[in-house]
Write a protein that binds this DNA or RNA. Structure first.
Length: 424
RNA sequence: GGAGAGAUGGCUGAGUGGCCGAAAGCGAUCGCCUGCUAAGCGAUUGUACGCCCUUUAAAGGUGUACCGCGGGUUCGAAUCCCGCUCUCUCCGCCA
């Protein structure tokens, strides 16, 4: 959410920025509502001031046993008017809020203007793509032939986009998120948290999933609880409605969680395999920083995500999302894309974003400056470190052998009781 | 699931209709004092949104709101009434 005052005072600049993001919003309506809101507010506050004054007088009169009935009658009338104003104020504020919640974040000046993913500039590439003297298979072929991924049973138990992992497959998934958690806690300084996997409406609104993206979420029947689409939601909301001390910042958290996404609107996309599931595991990194350091922290965060792939020995490239591809709440996002030989393409495996104060304002996460004592919004960042299911995909495809077996990357072997290979 | 108790500022905790944005204590900040430390003394100590002033800054002035959340009663609500949420205690059930 943008600051209403900022929006009011910089309306033309914001309009231009939104145009670059391919957004046209009813800013005129906003200005109208905002002016209306202030008019009503002034009127109602004046009346309230009057009433407070009169009530005091009434109290004094009564104490002196004097008649106050005339004034009381008058104030009954004033109270009725206040009530009317309150009602229209509430209406206007609701409309205003509804509008502001649909305005995306303003992109950082370094973000390239573009239409879609084809316009994302590549920031860097790392690693050697493996060369095979056979035709590389896709991960779902490998997974099925190795009897470690069972898509048919997943579909039977629940439905499409659900999978059963078996044996070495299940062990690999578990090894991966343990490895990732250990790496980020021990080498990168993150504090691990384990959160609820269902959250309430306020939390979803705080990070920006609601109200705009309700159709992407799974909601619990009969309650205002939602399954989390990412650990970003519960982890960011840990500090909702809190004022932190500057000394506490930056805060680094890393969390494992399953993620639940309805994938509405992606029918027919990535229907086979682990790429696009309704439920998948992810290790998520979340940072809370002071505003001055958030872009440095974004670089570090992205490097932390990349480090996972480096240690796993998987080639990747990092792109900076252009305006057309940038998420609603993000000011700047790097996507880390792992090389998938089976698909002969790079696929997103991590998305690292700086939300600046956009989420913090929605979620009221603030901090107190040490030198001035002033309260300000923190900056929030998050990034996958990494999407575990997609990492399994990358490992299967990159480490596949001519005989159909898959070598286990060395760093994972301690997490798999020394196992070196998933035999064909 | 049943019975009861509770929710007040950074924390502890008073307050049962007006003098309460809220006592007191703790903590914190600033200053004084002090050979150092401790102690002591004094001052300050929430957030949000308006308006005025101002260079659309800061500071300042002023108003309004906020005592779990939402309604109601009343000239006036932290205080009375209703609903909800959460916490605690006891009983039952349960991984």
């Amino acid at each position: 959410m943008l600051d209403i005052k900022f929006l009011r005072q910089n309306i033309d600049g914001v309009r231009a920025k939104m145009a670059d993001r391919g957004q046209s919003l009813h800013f005129d309506l906003f200005l109208e509502l905002e002016a209306k809101r202030r008019d009503i507010l002034m009127a109602v506050e004046t009346l309230r001031g009057e009433r407070n004054e009169a009530s005091k007088t009434i109290g004094e009169l009564k104490k002196k046993k004097q008649d106050a009935s005339q004034l009381m009658e008058k104030m009954a009338d004033v109270s009725a008017r206040i009530k009317e104003y309150d009602e229209s104020l509430r209406t206007v504020e609701e409309e205003l809020q509804a509008f502001v919640l649909t305005v995306p974040n303003i992109q950082h000046h370094s973000v390239v203007v573009g239409g879609g993913s084809e316009d994302n500039p590549v920031v860097r590439t790392w690693g050697e793509k493996p060369v095979f003297n056979f035709e590389a298979k896709q991960h779902f072929e490998l997974g099925e032939s190795l009897n470690i991924l069972d898509f048919a049973r997943g579909a039977k138990i629940t439905g499409a986009r659900f999978t059963v992992y078996r044996g070495a497959g299940a062990a690999l998934e578990r090894a991966l998120f343990n490895f990732m958690l250990d790496l980020h806690t021990e080498a990168h300084g993150y504090t691990e948290v384990l959160t609820p996997f269902m959250v309430n409406r306020e939390s979803m609104t705080g990070t920006g999933q609601l109200p705009k993206f309700a159709e992407d979420l799974f909601k619990i029947e009969g309650m205002e609880y939602y399954l989390i689409p990412t650990a970003e939601v519960p982890v960011t909301n840990i500090y909702r409605d809190e004022i932190l001390e500057e000394d506490q910042l930056p805060i680094y958290h890393v969390a494992y969680s399953p993620c639940f996404r309805s994938e509405a609107g992606s029918y027919g996309k990535d229907t086979r395999g682990l790429i696009r599931q309704h439920q998948f595991n992810k290790v998520e990194m979340v940072k809370f920083t002071i505003p001055e350091t958030s872009y440095d922290e974004l670089e570090k965060l992205t490097a932390n995500a990349e480090e996972v792939l480096k240690r796993l020995g998987i080639a990747y490239r990092t792109v900076s999302l252009c305006t057309g591809d940038l998420g609603f709440s993000s000011a700047k996002t790097y996507d880390v894309e792992a090389w998938l030989p089976g698909q002969n393409t790079y696929r997103e495996i991590s998305s690292c974003s700086n939300f600046e104060d956009f989420q913090a304002r929605r979620a009221a996460i603030r901090f107190r400056r040490k030198d001035t004592g002033k309260v300000e919004f923190v900056h929030t960042l998050n990034g996958s470190g990494l999407a575990v299911g997609r990492t399994v995909v990358a490992i299967l495809e990159n480490y596949q052998q001519a005989d159909g077996s898959v070598i286990i990357p060395e760093v994972l072997r301690p997490y798999m009781r020394g196992r070196k290979r998933i035999p064909a």
